[in-house]
Amino acid sequence: MKTETKQAVNKQRVLPPVFQYPSAAVPLLITQGAEALLYRSTYLLPSIPCALKYRPSKPYRHPILDVRLTKHRILSEARVLVKCKREGVPVPAVYALDEAAGWLMIEWIEGEVVRIRLNEWLKRRKDEDLAEGVDDEQLLELMTRVGSAVGRLHAVGVVHGDLTTSNLMLRPRSREGLNGDLGAAVNTLEGDIVLIDFGLASQSQADEDRAVDLYVLERAFGSTHPRAESLFGEVLREYGKSFKGANVVLKKLEEVRMRGRKRSMIG
C-alpha cells in the first residue's frame, strides 16, 4: 500500500514539536501517510540514526477522541514491536516514545525495500537479456526468506495488517557493508529481511487474520512484480514449514482468495 501523497507535501510542513530542540542534522521527512509522518533523525547521539514516526493531531476529530486514539496507536505499535523483538522476529527496535505527544522513535533500518530491490533486479535481468532461469536461484532464495520471516511473525501471534513489498526491507548483512560494499549490494537480493511499518498490526492468532496478511502480500507481489508473482509459491512453501498450524492458514488463504475482497453486505 502506497503511503505517499503528493498533495499534502504542498502544505508547509512544520516539524513535530519533539524536533523543536537542536540536533546534529535537520530531521528528514521520509514519507507522509494518511495517518503518520516518518522522519529520519538521530537518537541520543549524532551517531545513532533513528526513524521517528509522528502521528499528528487530526483536526476533524473531537480533541478528546483524537488524543485517546493517538495514544492508543502509538502504544499498540510499540507493544507489538517490542514483543516481536523479544521473540526474535526481525523488526526495528523501539528506542523511545511519547504517546501524549504522538511519537515513536525506532531503529533506523539501513538498506532498501524489497519492492525497489526487486524492480532493480528484474530490470537488470531484462537489460542484460539474461535467459529465464538464470539467477532465479537468488529470487527463489529471497522468497524463501520472506516466507520464513512472515512465518516467524505469525508464530508469535502478531499479524502485520499491511504486508506489502514496501514494508519488507533488505538490510545488508555485514555492518561494514555500509561503508564499502554498498555498490555491490545494490544489484543483488541479498540481505536480512526486516519487517517494517507496524501501524496497522495487531496481536492475533486467528487463521483468518493470518491468511489475509498472506493474501495482501500475494496481491502486492502480483500487482508490482508480475514476474515475481509466479514465484510466490516459494513464500508459501517456506511459510508452511515455519510453525505448527501454518498449513491451516494456507488452507484459509484459498478461501480468502475465492472470496475476493469481503462478503457482500445484505442491503
Binding site: L75, A78, R79, L81, V82, K83, K85, R86, A93, V94, Y95, A96, L97, E107, Q203
Partner: peptide, 15 residues
C-alpha cells in the same frame, strides 16, 4: 540493550 530500551519505553504499559 535494545530489549531493555524497549522495556523502558513501554514503562507500565506492557502486555
Amino acid at each position: 540493550e535494545v530489549l531493555v530500551l524497549g522495556a523502558m519505553a513501554l514503562r507500565g504499559v506492557t502486555n
